[in-house]
Write a protein that binds this DNA or RNA. Structure first.
Lengths: 149, 149
DNA sequence: TAGCATTAAACAGCATGCTATGCAATAATA
DNA sequence: TATTATTGCATAGCATGCTGTTTAATGCTA
């Protein structure tokens, strides 16, 4: 009859997401970063000089969301946008020195925030939990997401 | 060194949350409801006539978030706010007829959206997964959240 | 009882996410 | 080659979440 939040995978996942984001934000704030900015940076740290389109695809958010986030990152001096040499529609997103310098610290605190989440389970179950999350994401992307045309 | 999103419990949970919210939104839209509105309604369906403070505590969001959501729900004709008989600061939030009529359908589609999420796992693992989510939420609330003073 | 603290809501301002549109540049095709 | 389709981004507008501040009503206490 009624809806039991405490047994809803979606509601529980959303709550974990909110608490994780808050934990990460508290740790990133001293570095001048936000959670979404961190994700973009982590992509650029592994490969600098990507187009907005590539970043959008790899992080799995909508193009407009990425455009807004990149706008804030440019405003905050984390990235620069330079014209694409071959395609005048596109731009190359590249790290500033300031952003490059944050990699070690930011990665460390992000790992810490994730450890806090996993810390809710005994070590013996953590690996299985990660595996379950991964399988669910794959299934949802395949089933509910936009079909890859 | 670098940050691996695909092994981050927080990132994966956030992604499941986004995909779940989208799946739920698609199903609720024909009823004129949004995911956050559904959660408030589900609370009111089980006990009508609560104060904003009670709803805030039970759904675990901030007071300001709840005030905004209730504002949209009032605008959309789902709830009414009436003065509290004993406390002139407070208001009683009660369901409109229209909102009361949606319970069965809305609950059904929400269950469906949750089934889609759990569907990413074999049935044998679903119960364990729910238990893990619940334990993590409890641990995070206790550890990182605002201490219950 | 006067004054301070607490509580219930509202409001302001911001970050992230989304959809829908619009625009310019590039590609494909009739 | 002229049209049409596609692609890469930007913008607008909205929902949800947060923090911080303000206001009004209540409660407590010296």
């Amino acid at each position: 009859m009624s809806f039991d939040k405490s047994r809803s995978a979606g509601v529980l996942a959303s709550e974990i997401a909110r608490l994780y984001t808050a934990a990460l934000q508290r740790r990133l704030a001293p570095l001048g970063l936000s959670p979404a900015q961190f994700l973009v940076l982590s992509e650029l740290w592994s490969e600098d000089g990507q187009t907005q389109r590539m970043l959008t695809a790899r992080l799995g958010v909508e193009q407009a969301t990425m455009a807004n986030t990149l706008g804030r990152m440019e405003r905050d001096g984390q990235i620069e946008r330079r014209p694409h040499p071959d395609d005048r529609r596109a731009q190359i997103v590249s790290l500033t020195e300031a952003a490059r310098a944050l990699e070690a610290q930011a990665t460390a605190v992000a790992r810490e925030a994730n450890a806090v989440v996993l810390g809710g389970l005994p070590v013996a179950e953590q690996e299985l939990f990660l595996s379950m999350l991964g399988r669910i994401v794959s299934a949802l992307r395949a089933g509910e997401g936009v079909p890859p045309s």
